[in-house]
């Protein structure tokens, strides 16, 4: 393949990947984060005790997470059409990506919040804090480094998932690699795609790590 053509394919598919990852990531986090907070605080004897609802949401989250992504993409096509108006293309691919992101984020956020020392919740209660204040001023604030790491992991996973939505014409880097590199046997395209993905994932991970380190005040720092 001519280098100019490869470059133009790479940039257009990179843009598609970024679109899918960002939109699915933002919407998935917006919905998944509150669900994660709820899962972490609604057990028996916790801040918002609702053990039954907790159980049911937990089950739905597990069911979604145990469905292989490619099956999820196909299975929810009617829903995708309802939301995006079509079942094909980058816009449509965002729907299953978001649906898969929500339970993923929810479980990671739940784990991050459960790590917060219970003594801090007790101290806040002793100060007269409302449950809502405890969530915002204690749980989310103290879990911020872990939440940052969780969202970094989410973005990296989304980049991986986005390669699979080529199945519904979602486009993106992964799709480019499969169609040109694999099906048309163009190893240089495959190599270029993999290199771009490596750089992309590396950049996201480094940025996430740096941000998490900045938020983390739990350890004494030198210098």
């Amino acid at each position: 393949m001519a280098p100019e053509m490869l470059l133009s394919l790479l940039t257009s598919t990179l843009w598609q990947t970024v679109q899918m990852v960002v939109v699915a990531g933002v919407i998935g986090t917006a919905i998944g984060l509150p669900i994660g907070v709820f899962l972490a605080t609604s057990g028996k004897g916790e801040l918002f005790p609702a053990p039954l609802t907790n159980r049911i949401i937990g089950l739905i989250v597990n069911a979604t997470r145990s469905t292989p992504f490619i099956i999820l993409v196909v299975a929810i096509i009617p829903f995708t059409r309802l939301v995006a108006g079509t079942s094909i293309g980058t816009g449509a691919a965002i729907v299953p990506l978001t649906v898969a992101t929500i339970p993923f984020v929810a479980r990671l956020i739940e784990a991050a919040i459960r790590e917060v020392d219970k003594g801090l919740i007790e101290a806040a209660r002793a100060m007269g804090a409302t449950p809502f204040q405890i969530v915002t001023k204690v749980l989310l604030a103290e879990a911020r480094p872990s939440i940052t790491m969780a969202l970094t992991l989410t973005i990296v996973s989304l980049i991986g998932y986005s390669a699979m939505v080529g199945a519904v014409g979602g486009g993106g880097l992964g799709d480019l690699g499969i169609r040109y590199g694999y099906q048309r046997f163009m190893p240089e395209v495959m190599l270029a795609v993999v290199l771009v993905l490596i750089v992309l994932v590396q950049a996201v991970q480094s940025a996430g790590d740096a941000l998490a380190r900045r938020f983390d005040k739990r350890h004494r720092k030198h210098g």
Binding site: V138, E142, R218
Partner: peptide
């Protein structure tokens, strides 16, 4: 408290 229970992020 025994273990102070200060917020590490503040």
């Amino acid at each position: 408290f025994q273990h102070f229970n200060l917020l590490s992020s503040r």
